[in-house]
Amino acid sequence: MSSAKTRPANRVPAKIVLAAAAADIVLILAFAAIGRDAHHRENPVAGVFLTAWPFLAGAALGWIAAKAWRSPLSVRRAGVAVWLGSLVGGMLLRGLTGQTVVLPFVIVATLSLALFLLGYRLLGAAAAKFRNR
């Protein structure tokens, strides 16, 4: 078999997929760290992971549902799914594990995660359009 049949020509390089996944993880951790810092909680490192894990799990589900590795920098194909997965999955998991889920937090999480998870993808798309001019 030729490599053209085993690997599509438009396949996204693994380093791009890994970079997008890492960016999502770092940005969700930053969201959790900013929130923890704003509320002056104890155990900063463990607390960040306690706050972040439901959102990270939800983002992973979003990656899987959207098959985001096929177009990890796409706002529409990957970003929206990762954002909604992290938000909805994160809130559901927080609620199921007895963590706080109140309207002000949902609003802040919605806006913050959208800014973070969609923002870098939008910037990347704008930069690509600019480069192609």
Rank of each mutant, 00 (worst) to 15 (best):
A59D: 09
F55T: 02
T51V: 15
V80C: 08
P104Q: 09
V80T: 12
W63S: 01
T97I: 11
S74M: 03
G89K: 07
R76V: 15
G98P: 07
T97H: 12
R77C: 09
T100P: 14
W63P: 06
L92C: 12
M91W: 15
V88A: 08
A57N: 03
L93W: 10
G62H: 01
G62Y: 01
M91Q: 15
V75Y: 10
F55R: 00
K67A: 14
V101R: 00
I107H: 06
K67V: 04
I107A: 09
G90W: 01
R77V: 04
G90L: 03
A60G: 08
A81E: 09
L96G: 11
G98T: 11
A78L: 07
R70A: 13
G89Q: 00
P72Y: 04
L61C: 14
W53T: 10
A60L: 15
T97E: 12
A81D: 10
L50S: 14
R94W: 12
R70K: 14
G98C: 12
F105H: 02
S86F: 01
S71K: 14
L96V: 11
L61T: 06
W53A: 11
S74A: 01
F105E: 07
G90T: 03
G58I: 01
V102H: 14
W83R: 00
L73Y: 11
M91A: 15
G90N: 00
L73R: 08
W53I: 02
G62P: 03
L61E: 03
R70W: 00
S74I: 05
A68W: 03
F105Y: 13
A52I: 04
A65L: 12
V75N: 07
V80I: 15
